[in-house]
Structures are given as C-alpha cells and as structure tokens.
C-alpha cells in the first residue's frame, strides 16, 4: 500500500511559536540591559506578537479532516459535522 506522508501545510507560525517568541521578548526586555532603540524595537515586536496571538485565539475555528485510504494512499478531506 503506498503511504504518503501528509504534512501540516500552513506556513504561518503557530500560536506556540508566536507565544514562545513573545515570552522571549518579554524576558529580554525585563533584563533592562538593552540600548533604548533596541528595547523599543523589541517592544514593538512584542506588541505585534501579542496582537497576532490574540487574533489567532479570537478567530480560531476547529478544523476537522477525515483521513481515508484511497488508491493514491492517504487522503484528507474536510469533515462536515453532523
């Protein structure tokens, strides 16, 4: 049986990655040892990250795919509830 590996197709960073970066930014800022220009740039990045996270949480809608085996191997099709 041919087996095709399906991969997560989204190129946008995951919530986890965004959150990790945000936490890193917060920690760096909190050491307070950065030049001001760098600190401000980090702050802006942090705000953008936090906005992006917020958007992800607000807009999230559970996606459901059904996995099935066909002649081409594994295929995933959106699954309609009910």
């Amino acid at each position: 049986m041919p087996r095709k590996t399906a991969t997560a197709g989204d190129a946008t960073p995951s919530y986890e990655a965004l959150m990790q970066r945000l936490q890193h930014v917060v920690e760096r800022l909190e050491t307070g040892e950065l030049p001001l220009a760098e600190a401000l740039a980090l702050y802006e990045e942090g705000v953008a990250l936090s906005t992006r996270c917020q958007q992800l949480l607000d807009a999230a809608e559970l996606r459901i795919q059904q996995l099935s085996v066909g002649v081409d191997g594994l295929t995933m099709t959106p699954w309609a509830d009910e």
């Binding site: 919530y15 959150m19 945000l22 800022l29 950065l34 600190a39 942090g46 705000v47 936090s50 917020q54």
Partner: peptide, 19 residues
C-alpha cells in the same frame, strides 16, 4: 491562554515603561 497572553503584554509594557 488569554490570561497568559494578557499577562505577557502587561509585562512587556511595564518593562519598556520602566526603561
């Protein structure tokens, strides 16, 4: 997660305001 996010945002603002 929302709480955590809000907390991070506050820490961010506090850190930069302190600086």
């Amino acid at each position: 997660l929302r709480n955590e996010l809000q907390l991070s945002t506050e820490r961010l603002r506090e850190a930069v305001e302190l600086q």
